[in-house]
Design a protein around this nucleic acid. Structure first.
Length: 222
DNA sequence: AAAATAACCAACCGCCGACAC
DNA sequence: CGTGTCGGCGGTTGGTTATTT
């Protein structure tokens, strides 16, 4: 019944719908998105509810224009990670993957003269372990934190998936056949390695420009 | 002032991996 | 094992708003 036909509403959310969703999350917490429709009567599918919360209603979401610092960070991270929007957003406090993606597509790609789809190849094969995904929200935001983000939103966690994730298949074979140590392949290596501090120079050059390597490394533990 | 075009961005879609049964 | 469900991700769409003609 629920799946069929037009049971679920589509399109923009109304204030009333937002209110219902907020109320549900206040009472039950995040997760179990697909239950929301059943419990609240909201005619939105679980995915839609999750997206609305993640991209708009969550108090962690920062509204307003991107600062120069944020843009700079996104450009750097995109150069490093390609279109891994969730990873990039994870390092830009208060910004969601959708925001980052939209901002890139509408502003930054033009600014940089980047053609669409160019970066798909980069780390597209990068697999992120579930533990990391679960912890992503709680990554330390330290270095690049925007003062506008309430400190209560920065859940300090020392989680550092790197180092105990030799199983990361990201790199699959690291494309060893064509390994020419461009930024993305270096990054692939970086992600896949069991080494605790692999810091290929070319990668560091690309990413760290303007930042202290120590600070970056301490903060950027994927 | 009106129409056409461009820009923006919220939300949808399809796919995937993890997990429970 | 296979199957179904769920949450998550990246690409894309389409409605709205802004700008240009």
């Amino acid at each position: 019944m629920e799946k069929g036909g037009n049971y679920y509403k589509k399109g923009l959310w109304t204030e009333e719908e937002d209110k219902i969703l907020m109320e549900y999350i206040t009472n039950h917490g995040k997760g179990k998105w697909s239950r929301i429709a059943r419990i609240t009567g909201l005619k939105r599918c679980g995915k839609s509810c999750r997206l609305r919360w993640m991209n708009y209603l969550s108090p962690n979401v920062k509204k307003g224009d991107f600062s120069e610092e944020e843009e700079d960070l996104i450009i750097r991270l995109h150069k490093l990670l390609g279109n891994r929007w969730s990873l990039i957003a994870g390092r830009v406090p208060g910004r969601t993957d959708n925001q980052v993606k939209n901002h890139w597509n509408t502003h930054l790609s033009k600014k940089l003269g980047v053609k669409k789809r160019q970066h798909k190849a980069g780390l597209s094969s990068l697999k992120v372990p579930r533990e990391y995904k679960q912890e992503r929200e709680t990554l330390p935001l330290g270095l690049f934190s925007n003062p506008k983000v309430p400190s209560s939103d920065k859940k300090g966690v020392n989680a550092s998936p790197i180092g105990n994730h030799g199983s990361w298949t990201a790199v699959e074979d690291f494309d060893a056949r064509h390994a020419d140590f461009n930024e993305t392949s270096v990054c692939s290596y970086w992600f896949s390695s069991d080494n605790s501090s692999p810091s290929p120079t070319s990668f560091m050059d690309v990413f760290l420009d303007g930042y202290s390597p120590d600070v970056i490394w301490n903060d950027l533990k994927f």
